Amino acid sequence: GLPPGWRKIHDAAGTYYWHVPSGSTQWQRPTW
C-alpha cells in the first residue's frame, strides 16, 4: 500500500499521487 496520508488519483492525464496533509502531488509512486 501507500504511505500514510497518500491517495492515488485517476484523471484524464493518467494516475498520480496526492499527499493529503501537505497538498502536494507527484507522478512517482511515493515510497516509505
Rank of each mutant, 00 (worst) to 15 (best):
R7D: 07
T31H: 09
P3W: 05
P4L: 06
W18F: 14
Q28W: 12
P30Y: 04
G1I: 10
L2I: 03
A12R: 09
L2Y: 03
W18I: 15
R7I: 15
H10I: 14
W32E: 10
V20M: 10
P21M: 06
P4Q: 05
G1A: 13
T31V: 11
T15L: 08
G1P: 13
I9Q: 06
S22L: 05
W6S: 00
H10M: 12
A13R: 14
Q26S: 12
S22Y: 04
W32R: 07
Q26I: 07
S24E: 13
Q26H: 05
P4N: 06
R29P: 14
W27V: 15
H10Y: 10
A13P: 02
G5R: 00
D11T: 15
W32A: 09
G14D: 04
Q26Y: 04
G1E: 13
Y16D: 02
P30I: 00
Q26M: 09
P3Y: 00
W18G: 03
I9G: 05
H10G: 07
T25G: 09
I9L: 08
W6A: 00
P30S: 00
T15H: 08
W32S: 10
S22P: 03
R29Y: 11
G5S: 03
Y16L: 09
D11A: 12
W6F: 01
P4T: 06
G1M: 12
S22W: 02
G23I: 00
W6T: 03
P3V: 07
W27K: 14
W6D: 03
T25S: 09
Y17S: 00
I9S: 03
G5L: 01
P3T: 01
R29M: 12
P21S: 07
D11S: 15
W27G: 07
A13E: 11
H10V: 15
P21T: 07
G23V: 00
P4E: 08
W18Q: 13
R29E: 13
H10A: 11
A12S: 12
H19E: 01
P21Y: 07
W27M: 13
P3A: 03
W32P: 08
Q28G: 09
P30V: 00
Y17V: 00
T31K: 10
R29D: 08
G23L: 03
H10D: 14
L2H: 01
G1S: 13
W27F: 12
T25Q: 09
T15W: 10
A12N: 11
T25W: 13
G14E: 04
G14P: 03
R7N: 07
G14R: 06
Y17I: 00
G5I: 01
V20F: 10
V20A: 11
P30G: 02
G1Y: 09
H19R: 01
P3G: 04
P21R: 04
H19S: 03
W6G: 02
P30Q: 01
H10T: 15
S24D: 12
K8D: 06
W6M: 02
R29W: 08
R7E: 13
T31Y: 10
T15N: 08
W27D: 09
S24A: 14
G23N: 12
T25R: 13
P21I: 09
G5F: 02
W18D: 03
P30D: 01
Y16V: 07
V20P: 04
R29K: 12
T31R: 07
Q26D: 04
T31F: 08
K8T: 12
I9R: 05
T15K: 03
R29N: 08
Y16T: 00
A13Q: 14
W27L: 14
Q26T: 10
H10W: 09
P21L: 08
P4I: 05
P21F: 07
P4F: 07
G1N: 13
G5E: 04
T31Q: 11
S24I: 15
K8V: 15
P4W: 06
G14L: 05
G1F: 11
Y16Q: 04
W6K: 00
W27I: 15
G14Q: 06
P3S: 03
P30W: 01
S22T: 14
H19I: 01
G14M: 06
Q26W: 06
Y16A: 02
A13L: 14
T25V: 15
P3N: 01
T25E: 06
T31D: 11
S24K: 15
Q28S: 09
A12Q: 10
W18H: 10
V20I: 11
H19Y: 04
Y16K: 05
W18S: 07
Y16E: 03
A12H: 10
G14N: 05
G5Q: 01
R7P: 05
K8A: 14
W18M: 15
I9D: 04
I9E: 05
T15S: 09
Y16P: 02
D11I: 11
Y17F: 07
W6H: 01
A13W: 14
T15V: 13
H19F: 03
T25Y: 13
T15E: 11
T15G: 08
W32H: 11
I9H: 05
P3Q: 02
S24N: 14
W6V: 00
P30N: 01
I9K: 05
Q26G: 02
G23M: 06
V20Y: 11
I9V: 14
W6I: 00
W32M: 11
Q26L: 06
W32N: 10
W6R: 00
S22E: 02
S22G: 03
V20R: 05
L2S: 05
G14F: 08
G5M: 02
A13Y: 13
P4V: 05
R29T: 10
Q26A: 07
Y17N: 00
Q28H: 13
R7H: 12
G1R: 12
S22I: 02
H19D: 02
A12I: 11
P30E: 02
H10K: 12
T31N: 10
Y16S: 02
W6L: 00
V20N: 03
D11W: 07
P4M: 06
T15R: 04
P4D: 09
V20L: 08
D11V: 10
R7S: 09
R7M: 14
Y17M: 01
L2P: 05
P30R: 00
G5A: 01
W6E: 00
Y17L: 02
T25H: 09
G14S: 04
P30L: 01
S24V: 15
T15M: 07
R7W: 09
H19N: 00
V20E: 14
W27P: 10
V20Q: 12
S22N: 02
R29F: 11
G14K: 06
Y17R: 00
P21H: 07
L2N: 01
R7L: 15
Q28A: 12
A12G: 10
H10N: 10
P30H: 04
